[in-house]
C-alpha cells in the first residue's frame, strides 16, 4: 500500500466517523466493505438472472409465471470492454470540481452469463486495463453532502495496486 493510499484511507476513516454511509441507490448491492456483491434476482424456472433485480415478473419469454428470488451476483468477472469519461458527465451525475477523469468498465460474469457496467475503482485508468483481466466488485464513495457519503459499486482489477494516477 502506498503512502498516498494510507493517507486516503485514513481520511476516509475520519469522514466515516462523522458521516453516514448510505447506498447511492437502495437495494442494488450489499453494504459489505470487505466482500460486497451486487444484488440481482433469478428466474427460478429458467435459471436466468436479472440486474437490476426483477421481483414481480420474469422477463424471460415463456417464464412469466416463474418464481423470482433475490440473489447476490458473482463478485468477480472478466473485463469485456472499457472506456473513460475525460469530460464531466452532466447532472444527475455529481461531478467533482474540477472534474477528475474516471474509467468505466463492462465486466462479464461467468455464472450469470451477463455483462455489468460500473465505474472503475479510483486510481485505475484505461492504461491499467486489458481485455479479459479479472475484475472484482468494490464499494466507493460516489459523492457526499454535509450528512452522508453516498456509496456505489465499482469494478477493480483483481490483485492489482493502483499504478500512479492516485486521485490526490
Amino acid at each position: 500500500m502506498t503512502v498516498a493510499q494510507i493517507a486516503t484511507d485514513s481520511a476516509t476513516f475520519w469522514d466515516m466517523a462523522s458521516k453516514n454511509r448510505v447506498p447511492a441507490v437502495e437495494g442494488w448491492f450489499t453494504m459489505d466493505d470487505t466482500n460486497p456483491a451486487l444484488i440481482g434476482s433469478r428466474c427460478v424456472d429458467s435459471g436466468n438472472y436479472f440486474f437490476p433485480k426483477e421481483l414481480e415478473h420474469s422477463r424471460v419469454p415463456g417464464f412469466g409465471d416463474s418464481k423470482l428470488e433475490e440473489v447476490q451476483l458473482s463478485r468477480t468477472g472478466t473485463l469485456w470492454s472499457w472506456t473513460d469519461a475525460a469530460y464531466a458527465p452532466p447532472p444527475p451525475f455529481v461531478a467533482q470540481d474540477p472534474h477528475v477523469p474516471f474509467a468505466i468498465a463492462c465486466v462479464e460474469l461467468a455464472e450469470e452469463q451477463m455483462v455489468i457496467m460500473g465505474q472503475v475503482a479510483t486510481g485505475f485508468s484505461v492504461e491499467d486495463l486489458s481485455m479479459g483481466m479479472e475484475m472484482e466488485l468494490t464499494l466507493e464513495t460516489l459523492y457526499e453532502d454535509d450528512d452522508n457519503e453516498y456509496i456505489v459499486w465499482k469494478w477493480k482489477p483483481v490483485g492489482a495496486g493502483a499504478t500512479g494516477g492516485e486521485a490526490s
Binding site: W82, T83, A85, F93, V94, I104, L142
Partner: peptide, 23 residues
Amino acid sequence: PDWLRFHLMGATNPTYFGMYARR
C-alpha cells in the same frame, strides 16, 4: 434507468460508444 446510469456511473452516450470501439 436513463437517469440512474448518469447518476450512478456517469455513463453518457459516448461511454457506450467507447465500449464498442475498444471492443
